[in-house]
Amino acid sequence: MQLLSSLPISNIEELAAAMPETGQTVTYTPVGGTRIAESDLFTLREEVLSLARAHGMPDSLNNSSEFEGRAARLLRERLNISPNEASHEEVWTYLTCCWLLDIAVWRFGAQADRRRFIGNINRNTFRRLWWRAEVLGPDIDLTQLGEDELVNIMERPTVASDLRLARAVAREFLSRVDRGAADSRMQLMREAMKRLLRLTPMIAFAALNEGELQSIIEEIFNAAAAGLAGHPATVSGRHRAEDQVLHSASSSSVEPSAGVVRIPRITIGDVAFPPRPPADSMRDQDFDGAAATALQIVRTTGRVTNTNLREMVAITSGEAREVLQALVRDGRLARRGIRRGTYYVLAEAAVDDDIAES
């Protein structure tokens, strides 16, 4: 921040003349790696600067996607650092402020968010480019991806942390763009990513083989394209057959092992949009059923909350509170936590915990 306030960042030519700033104290990681030589940093600066001049520097930037795509490859090739090293903010603050600040200011302007110049994970001018090349690999043409499309992949930690998944998404998207199958490419990517993220709690993408992963990504994009066109999404015959097998298995008459408590099966729709109870107060049988369910949950999972109970029984938040408080008064449950962190445990378990703590 001292450098940013002392260097002439409002004048590109003066700033370029002041680069590089080699008077700063530099430290290195205490374990492993080869220390980068100053001569390598001079070479890196010259190559990035040459690329920037080819795209308009010091005047207006032309073709930002091409510049950033090529710069990403260049940075990744010249900075052959480990992902651990590349995850440190200080690395990118030093490279940006001491070696490439004029290029960063030209790219985003002197009045840009200071996170463009310090090593912020998603905003630093060069850190985000290095990681795009690292995550998407050498086979994806980064110059063909727009900023919004890259952000949809790179700023989703669930996706970007799985290199195979991120690359499969990029390949499928670019394939559709190349063959003209995307009327609105930005909307297609956004819709596909929403559908993909909804699947991540239920599918272990890292456990899929290449064929399975590609098949699911294709179906996600097919559904996204159909939705944007106003058509209902369809499921492939292979997945319909799998669903039938799973349904047959779940509806079999196999009894659970001794000690396993069966709880009613619910769906995401049941949780999100449970049927509402009548407006009048709970009937005695409804109250008893809700109380039994609450005890079943706590015996199964060790605790029960207002939300847990409402997921299993079609009652309101106030009614769930009445049920749980009644069980506390009866000495069957004990309350723990405060406010939104409130939960209930079996009374005998609470007594054991209190004795252990004392």
Rank of each mutant, 00 (worst) to 15 (best):
M19H: 03
P20L: 06
G23Q: 09
T27D: 01
T29R: 01
P30C: 02
V31E: 01
G32D: 06
A37T: 04
S39V: 14
L44N: 02
R53A: 11
S60C: 00
N62S: 10
N63L: 10
G69N: 05
R73S: 05
R78S: 11
L79Q: 05
N80H: 10
N84A: 13
C97S: 10
C98W: 03
I103N: 01
V105C: 03
V105K: 01
F108Y: 15
Q111K: 13
A112C: 09
R116F: 10
G119D: 06
R127G: 06
D141H: 02
V151N: 11
V151M: 07
I153F: 10
E155Y: 14
A160S: 15
L165M: 08
A168S: 15
D178G: 07
R179S: 10
D183I: 10
M186F: 03
A192S: 14
M193C: 06
T200F: 11
P201T: 06
F205P: 01
A207Q: 05
N209Q: 06
E210D: 15
I217P: 02
I217S: 05
E219Q: 15
F221P: 03
G230M: 04
H231T: 06
H231F: 11
A233C: 10
Q244T: 03
Q244V: 02
S248Q: 14
V260P: 00
V260M: 01
I263M: 15
T267A: 11
P274N: 08
P277N: 07
P277F: 06
D280I: 04
S281Q: 09
S281L: 11
R283I: 04
R283E: 12
D284H: 08
Q285A: 11
G289F: 12
G289H: 14
A290N: 06
A292E: 13
L295C: 04
L295M: 15
R299N: 14
T300G: 07
T301W: 00
V304D: 02
V304L: 04
T305C: 03
R310N: 01
G318N: 11
E322L: 13
A326L: 07
V328P: 03
V328S: 08
R329A: 14
R332L: 15
A334G: 04
R339G: 00
R339D: 07
T342S: 06
Y343M: 00
Y343P: 00
A347S: 15
